[in-house]
Simulated scan of single mutants.
Amino acid sequence: MAQMNVSIPDALKSWAEHRVAEGRYSSTSDYVRDLIRRDQERADAVAELQAAVDAGRSSGRSDKTISDVIVEAINKYP
């Protein structure tokens, strides 16, 4: 496993130590790894959503009315 040294303000260090003291994390390193993992998951979800938005925008306009879309959705997911 790679090692990384990070400088943070005392208030953030105290916060991380407090989170470890609560018992959910075994160490501040464990806490930081979890934060990075969650940030990575969030970035992946945002990229996936952006790709869906881009695909929708590039697909063009539909001739369907809102009513048509609602009826299709009701029939597809009864």
Rank of each mutant, 00 (worst) to 15 (best):
G23A: 11
D63K: 11
P78G: 12
A55W: 09
D30H: 13
Q50D: 03
E72Q: 07
W15V: 08
Y25G: 01
Q40E: 07
V32P: 01
A73W: 09
Y25C: 04
R24W: 05
V71W: 04
A11Q: 06
D34T: 10
W15R: 10
V32E: 04
A55M: 12
D34Y: 12
E17Q: 14
R42K: 06
S14P: 00
S27Y: 11
Q3D: 04
P78K: 07
D39I: 03
D10W: 07
D63T: 04
I8W: 01
M4R: 15
A21S: 15
S59V: 04
I74E: 05
A21C: 06
S14Y: 03
Y25F: 15
Q50K: 11
I66E: 10
P9T: 01
V69M: 14
A52N: 00
V20G: 02
S14W: 00
T65S: 15
K76Q: 10
S59A: 15
G56F: 11
I8Y: 02
P78F: 03
L12P: 02
A2R: 14
S26P: 05
A55G: 07
G56A: 00
Q3Y: 15
N75I: 03
G23N: 08
L49R: 10
N5F: 15
V46K: 08
L35G: 12
G60S: 09
R24N: 09
Y77D: 00
V6A: 05
R37I: 08
M1A: 13
E41S: 07
I8E: 03
R24L: 04
I74R: 12
H18T: 12
Q40P: 00
G56K: 02
I36Q: 03
S27Q: 08
D30Q: 11
A45E: 05
A11V: 12
S58N: 12
D39A: 15
D44H: 04
Y25H: 10
